[in-house]
């Protein structure tokens, strides 16, 4: 599952619409599942037969669901199958199967207007899966939903990703979405991807805006003679309780100023801001200990690192704010 995040107008939607060529890129190529779609597109504005066939193998889920209000739930799911030219019996069998998959088997005969937002999006997902796609594009699929429903839709996507081996490309402005389900993420700003990689790689990148936005930590030093240290756990470190080990080994008191941690597959992922007594010079040894554990350690107020480090949280905060909207 690949998440693309960015503020409104950063070009996320254009990016995802380029993937199935609803929007034509002015230059470059789009390759999906080994097939060069831009080569299929031809020159005219209309989509040729081959491009349409390729599109039918790419599922797409929309922010506003885009279900036909004149059709029942089942008929909505049958629509892509009609386009593929399946027989009536085949279509209804498939549609009911998909409804079962998204947990709405009792809603086959109702109209979309009678469904809640979350249910509508489940129908949207079922419809997107009808053509047995290898790739599912999700254009802000959860942005119109409340947090609870968002979670259940994301779980559904995650399950589909695992069960069907479906690649999911997810566009969102909500950090939470990326954090919950994505294996990899990219940050878009002003039409460009400024950072990308797996969540672990991003965490391991010093000064990564995406990492600090995904795992925001804050907190100021409580006194002048204290050292504030940001510790990043990117899953490769030994699975040991390092903080208490540090405390016991060097007999120092450590206070945790802020932390954003997750445990993924038994490994700790996230960031923590801790405060050690004494100035930096007095703490070289404990910090060395942390580095030995395979953790990434950034010392706040460290002269060379401070400029990008200060810049990053500001942007990150802006992103988080945007997400809160």
């Amino acid at each position: 599952m690949y998440g693309v995040i960015g503020q409104s107008g950063a070009g996320k939607s254009s990016l995802i619409r380029c993937v199935n060529l609803l929007e034509r890129p002015t230059s470059g190529t789009v390759t999906v599942a080994g097939q060069d779609l831009t080569a299929l597109a031809g020159r005219g504005p209309r989509a040729g037969k081959e491009l349409r066939a390729a599109r039918s193998r790419i599922g797409m889920v929309f922010q506003h669901f885009n279900l036909l209000s004149s059709r029942t739930v089942q008929a909505n799911i049958e629509l892509p199958l009609e386009i593929l030219g399946l027989s009536g019996k085949e279509r209804s069998r498939k549609a009911l199967e998909l409804l079962d998959l998204v947990g709405l088997s009792d809603k086959a005969k109702v109209y979309p207007a009678q469904l809640s937002g979350g249910q509508k999006q489940r129908v949207g997902i079922a419809r997107a899966l009808a053509g047995e796609p290898k790739v599912l594009l999700s254009d802000e699929a959860t942005s119109a939903l409340d947090p609870e429903t968002t979670r259940s839709i994301l779980e559904l996507l995650r399950d589909l990703n695992r069960q069907l081996g479906l690649t999911v490309l997810l566009i969102t402005h909500e950090m939470e979405v990326v954090k919950t389900v994505c294996d990899s993420a990219a940050l878009m700003q002003r039409g460009r991807i400024v950072e990308s990689g797996t969540v672990n790689e991003l965490l391991a990148t010093p000064g990564s805006q995406l990492a600090s936005a995904l795992f925001p930590v804050s907190g100021e030093a409580t006194g002048a003679d204290r050292t504030v240290v940001d510790v990043t756990f990117h899953g490769e470190a030994a699975t040991q309780p390092v903080i208490s080990q540090l405390s016991r080994t060097y007999n120092i008191d450590i206070s945790i100023l802020g932390a954003a941690m997750d445990t993924v597959a038994g490994k700790q992922v996230g960031r923590m801001r801790i405060e050690l007594p004494g100035r930096f010079e007095e703490n070289v040894v404990p910090i060395g200990f942390l580095r030995e554990q395979g953790l990434q350690v950034d010392v706040a107020g460290d002269a060379p690192a401070s400029i990008p480090a200060q810049d990053a949280p500001a942007t990150a905060a802006a992103l988080v704010k945007e997400g809160a909207k």
Binding site: L22, A53, R55, S56, L79, P80, R127
Partner: peptide
């Protein structure tokens, strides 16, 4: 709603569809 048109296009539908 133009979104509906786009949805059908994304399924591989042509103009007639």
């Amino acid at each position: 709603d133009h979104g509906l048109v786009e949805a059908v296009q994304s399924m591989g539908g042509n103009t007639w569809t």
